[in-house]
Nucleic acid binder design. Structure first.
Lengths: 238, 238
DNA sequence: CGCTCATTTGAGGAACTTCAAGGTCAGTGG
DNA sequence: CCACTGACCTTGAAGTTCCTCAAATGAGCG
């Protein structure tokens, strides 16, 4: 991240609709400014990108994030801890519209592309000083951080529940975050979900089978496209 | 919390040194303003209290926290989720110097006194608008939220580790947060620690015994006063 | 002292992991 | 077109970790 061009270098042109399909939601950073055109201009002066990353690319190490904040346009970003032992924990998934990179170097997390993704890089200092002048921006930043805090706290709560409950809750929450479509097209892989929930892929797979047998969900054809058939029941799992 | 007097009503005068012993660290809200006397005055105009709570008193329900933010002066505050089933999870402990109440009503958490405690109540809106005028305050608030976010994320990481690792890490982190004294006087009860770590009190007790047998810690006389004997070893537990 | 609550210890059982193997799917090259 | 590859997903059997239930011990307070 010392030089953003290093990040963009390995990415060649490709057909957007193929990888960033129309089903993907896309977010717009300019909306942060509302209707204020001069503010929109100031914001766009702070941004660099969009930059594209392929699945499993490392976007940044947490130590590098001091200067830039990231904003997800399409795809899914994960922040995770990779231990020397090979064990991995995923702390958070970021979807379109989320800011990535609030937390400083304390925990040395790795920011990676969970799916192919498009990101904006935003000069952190510039955004913060903009917030000191503009109440709207200040509130957006405070809301962004407290929302992420709320999600982290829900994640903590989730981790002390059973595997069945963790997975049911994860799926319904994801369904809500992705806009409550008819089908839940799960964007991230099973290994990613398992590491997010503190489970093995085996337990994940077995539990999804259990939920399916209980009539709560259905694999519409494959594991990546689900239909949540009994929302009330899913919320009641424990 | 609609009326703070309701909170103060049940508390009678008592000998401070008995309950809020000298061993307890105490925090000063005015330090947020640094040396700026006029800023200190503006801050103190926003605060109400200190208010005292006894152990296990409910300080606020999360839905009530819209108007006030809290600042811990002495003691330990917990934010927790109490399910109808009787199950309880503790999301976070707040020590002297911490702000409580950033997260809004989404998750309906209960803010409770884990030990006897003294708190300031601070008008949220007033503090936020002060932040929009003053860069120092703005940075204090952003730092407070991102620090809490970092702690929540570490908590998430902790929850996917073994019981032994969770407890060893909890103890060393607590030791650091409390100022690295010779003895670790654990301020919160075993049930609270267990609910924070997603374990039972039995597992907690057994594991502490294991850590003691391994020579990593010692119960100096009782369970509430520990000595961390091998910090390197404690950090290496997995 | 005698009460209550907190902590410790034990035995058995449930939940999840580990290890192992088979199946599916998309992309690749012959 | 088809077989090959590698990553992902699924399923089974055995093993660990942690929980549940139950009881004993220890600490604080009137």
């Amino acid at each position: 991240m010392a030089n953003l061009d290093v990040c963009t270098a390995p990415f060649v042109e490709f057909d957007d609709t193929k990888i960033f399909g129309t089903a993907e939601t896309a977010a717009n950073f300019a909306k942060v400014a509302g209707d204020d055109v001069s503010l929109q201009r100031k914001l766009s002066a702070l941004q660099r990108g969009p930059v594209r990353f392929y699945q499993n690319n490392v976007i940044a190490l947490n130590e590098d994030v001091a200067d830039y904040l990231m904003f997800v346009i399409t795809g899914v970003v994960r922040s995770c801890k990779n231990c020397k032992s090979g064990h991995r924990s995923i702390v958070s998934f970021y979807l379109p519209g989320d800011f990535v990179g609030w937390v400083d170097a304390k925990l040395s997390l790795s920011i990676e592309a969970s799916t192919d993704t498009e990101l904006l890089f935003i000069k952190r200092k510039g955004l913060v000083s903009l917030a000191a002048q503009n109440v709207r921006i200040a509130n957006v930043l405070l809301t962004a951080t407290t929302n992420e805090l709320a999600r982290a706290q829900e994640h903590v709560l989730l981790m002390s529940k059973s595997a069945k409950c963790r997975i049911a809750t994860f799926l319904t929450d994801l369904w809500v975050r992705l806009g409550k479509a008819k089908y839940l097209d799960v964007p991230m892989s099973h290994p990613d979900i398992a590491d997010y929930l503190g489970l093995t892929t085996e337990t994940l797979s077995r539990t999804i089978t259990d939920l399916e047998r209980a009539g709560l969900i259905a694999r519409v054809p494959s594991a990546r496209r689900l239909m949540l058939q009994n929302h009330f029941g899913l919320r009641r799992v424990n």
